[in-house]
């Protein structure tokens, strides 16, 4: 059965079962030991594993009246999200701006440079959830801390969750002001607002 992302979370359990079944004498795992094992493993199991989503982060920005589409393809996300336990849920993401693509190589290089992402100094963009609120059926809004360069700011990201069996699929869209994060300077032609789309 394909359980998608959750497979990663469940996998250690499965391997433990395999380990116990094949290699360890069941008689050695007495009640006390089993209890210890459960307590020892639970914290690890609660830590979500990171995955690299298939879809890149997408963004759109207006430049001289034309919408430029860009992507950041190298990114990973950690999810431990339970719609019924929002206060305990966590979503974290980390993206590598070196993988930015806008269709023009020299422009990408410029975006990697110090006027924009300055990848030599700030190799990652990070996003970490602070809290979630429900916004209707399968819809939520999360408060995240977004760090680009050395600027950390809270952003509100509305997203949807579609769940098929144990497979969870998240879709979110939000807008940032690039100037808030020191991405370039005020421009007569380049918009301040960047619309960002994430799906995993």
């Amino acid at each position: 059965m394909d359980i998608g992302y959750l497979d990663i979370v469940v996998a250690p359990w499965r391997s433990l079962r395999i380990l116990c079944a094949r290699c360890v004498n069941p008689t050695l795992i007495n009640k006390k030991n089993r209890l210890f094992l459960v307590f020892a493993l639970v914290p690890f199991l609660l830590i979500a594993q990171s995955v690299k989503p298939e879809s890149p982060i997408q963004f759109k920005i207006k430049n001289a009246g034309i919408t430029v589409d860009g992507t950041i393809s190298d990114w990973e996300v950690e999810v431990d999200f339970d719609p019924k336990k929002l206060s305990q849920s966590i979503i974290r993401g980390k993206a590598n701006p070196e993988s930015i693509q806008t269709g023009i190589k020299l422009r990408d290089k410029h975006l990697q440079g110090r006027e924009y992402f300055h990848i030599q100094k700030f190799p990652f963009i990070s996003l970490e959830s602070k809290s979630f609120q429900p916004r209707g059926k399968n819809a939520f809004v999360g408060i995240f801390e977004l760090q680009i360069r050395d600027v950390k700011m809270e952003v509100e990201i509305p997203f949807t969750l579609s769940q098929t069996g144990r497979q969870q699929k998240f879709k979110g869209e939000f807008i940032i002001d690039r100037l808030d994060f020191g991405l370039g300077e005020k421009s007569l032609v380049l918009s301040d607002e960047v619309r960002i789309f994430v799906e995993f």
Partner: peptide, 9 residues
């Protein structure tokens, strides 16, 4: 085309 090609940067 001037905008699409990124000349404006």
């Amino acid at each position: 085309i001037f905008a699409e090609q990124g000349c404006v940067t």
